[in-house]
Each structure stands twice: as structure tokens, then as C-alpha cells.
Simulated assay, not measured.
Amino acid sequence: MKKQLWGFAAGGVLAAMIAVPASAHRQWMMPSSTVLSGDDVWVTVDAAVSNDLFYFEHQPMRLDALKAWAPDGSEATIENKATGRYRSTFDVHLTQKGTWRIASVVDGVMGSYDLNGKTERLPRGTTTANLAEKIPAGATNVRTAESNNRNEIFVTVGEPTNTLFKPTGKGIELVPVIHPNDLIAGEAFTFQFLLDGKPTADLPVTVIPGGIRYRDQLGQIDTRTGADGKVELTLPEAGMYWVNVTTPQVEGEGEGPPPADAPPRRRASYVTTLEVLAP
């Protein structure tokens, strides 16, 4: 069986998370609050895939890969999970002071193969562990590429902490120069993005303010990371913002099978929701 790696334009989870036109679907998580105080604190999170940020009118986000971590790094319990027709929802009991991370990280393999004169795509849910069983006997011209899709939010009780920002070295990850729960409208802030643990230049960054259903202009900001993987942003108004960072798409990618000598293509996507406070 001949096997090669190549770039593949995936559907499903990846398509919902990459930078897309205004009419396409976006995956997001929306916390009831990102900055809290007190000794018995909870956060409720809505999670969906929709056209309008942050309204649920298309489909719920799957919660299979959802996890939460307390400021000391211990894994926390996700409580009261529920999935309806248009959204999922869940609660996290914030029992420690500091910054919590709630994330859905999905790793997979996308690609295609030729069988009986037809080109078939690998089924959804294919991973490096089950790849061999997903490719039928007799398949030829197998093309695969790994993907990593991270959707995460941060919630702080009391003073912000940075203990949960240690990179795992896999996919696109955020290294905040300014804490994501300490953003003020009209004030510049800097984030750094890593790809597989390394600062990476030229990653497309898209920022869209919520509430697009009720305004004429999308308000989208498009930029790219610099040589050190950093991007500086100034968000003009208080509110919730959707942020999406992806690996660049090669011109012509997804428009048919690539040449036999096409180089491997790494596909990764990052999504977060930021709350920007009034001055």
C-alpha cells in the first residue's frame, strides 16, 4: 500500500474552527463571566456552532473532548452537561482562586485513498491510533495529514495566575504576554502563539466581536503573527470577542488531489473567547 502525506481541506470540526467568511459556521464557547470573586463560585458555559456570534441557531458543540483544569493544574469536574438542539451547556465549580482553563482539544487524521476507481475520504473520527483499520484492503494512493483543533476559554477567580499557560508542544497554543482576563477596551495587548511548541510566524489571526446579528458591519480584524509568533491587538469596545488562529492555507489546497511529491501539510486551529472590559 503506497502512502504519502499531504495537505487536505477537512470538513467537520476543522471547518467549523478555521478562519472563514461571515456566512460560515464558527465554533465557540461562551462563559457566563470570565472574572469573578467570592468563595463559592460557579461558571456556566454555552457551547455551539453558529453563524452569528454568540447566538445558537445552527447546532450544538460536541462535549466529548471537553476538560477543565484548576489553577494548581489538577483536572476539575465538568458538571451538569446537557446538549440540546442548538447548543450544549455545562457548569464548572470554581473551588480555587486564580485562573481556570476550560478546553476541548481534538486530534485527528484527515485524508483520502483510492479504491475501485474512486477517491474516498477517511471517515470522521480517524486518529493515528485507528488509522490502519480505517483504510480498507486494496486501497492505494493514501494521503493523510494530522490535525489538531483547540477551543479554550479562561476564567479567573480573584487575582489572575499564569500556572496553566505552560505549552504542551502540540497544535497551536496561546502564550499571553498580557493575561487574557485582563483586557481593557482601547488598550493594546500582545499574545504569542506557538505551533507544536515553537513561536511561529505568519499564522492567520481573525478577531470578530460578538453581537454581529444586530449590526451592519462584521467588524472583523484580520492580521498575522510576526516572526516571534506575537500579535498586538487593540479592541475598540467592551464585550465578547471570538479569536481564531490557524495554520496558513496553501493556494489551491482542497481543489483536488495534490501532486505525488506534495510535501506534508500540518493542519491546526485555535479558538478562544475573550471578554474585553470597559476602561
Rank of each mutant, 00 (worst) to 15 (best):
W100A: 04
D202E: 15
Y86W: 06
F193E: 02
A139N: 09
V207N: 01
I221E: 03
V245Q: 08
R87H: 11
E237D: 13
A76M: 09
H58N: 11
A137P: 10
V175W: 09
H58R: 12
K230M: 12
T161L: 11
R85W: 15
D261G: 07
D39N: 14
G171P: 08
A68V: 04
E232P: 00
I184L: 13
L115W: 02
G84L: 06
W6R: 14
T83E: 10
P204S: 06
L94W: 01
G11E: 05
P31F: 04
G38S: 11
P167S: 11
A262K: 09
D64F: 04
D46T: 05
G138S: 00
I178Q: 15
P180C: 09
L277H: 12
H25I: 15
L122K: 01
R213Y: 14
L53I: 10
P60Q: 05
I102G: 04
L233N: 03
V106P: 08
S32R: 08
T200C: 02
L164R: 08
R124A: 14
H93K: 13
D216H: 14
D46L: 08
N151K: 12
T156P: 01
K97C: 11
Q59S: 10
Q192P: 09
V49Q: 00
H179F: 00
K97I: 12
